[in-house]
Amino acid sequence: MAAELHSYLMVGAVLFVCGVICMATKRNGIGVLMGVELVLNGANVNFVAFSRYTKLGLDGQIFSLFIIVLAAAEAAVALAIALNFYNNHLTIDVDRANKLKG
């Protein structure tokens, strides 16, 4: 059991790190969003694994459900922001969004 939990956590870790690298390297705004999705999924995997293999029980599943729902909401808002950004800058390159540069 512990081995399986371990494997699940590793899968989650890989997803998480991939998401972070995705966020760090992609200049496309949508790509960054995808990175965020990956990160959230890494967390999801961990929750479900804990739900299955520890005494966490249903709570883990419900947390992952909430994460999924909030990810959907976040995607909707982020997409709207991205569209607005595109309308204003005619590009989706996040490096152009440096108006807050110090």
Binding site: T25, V32, D95, A97, K101, G102
Partner: peptide, 18 residues
Amino acid sequence: SLKVVQTGKLRQYVMFIV
């Protein structure tokens, strides 16, 4: 002197976090 840190680049922020 601190504003240099604010690059305005999203990806760099992510890197900082990591």
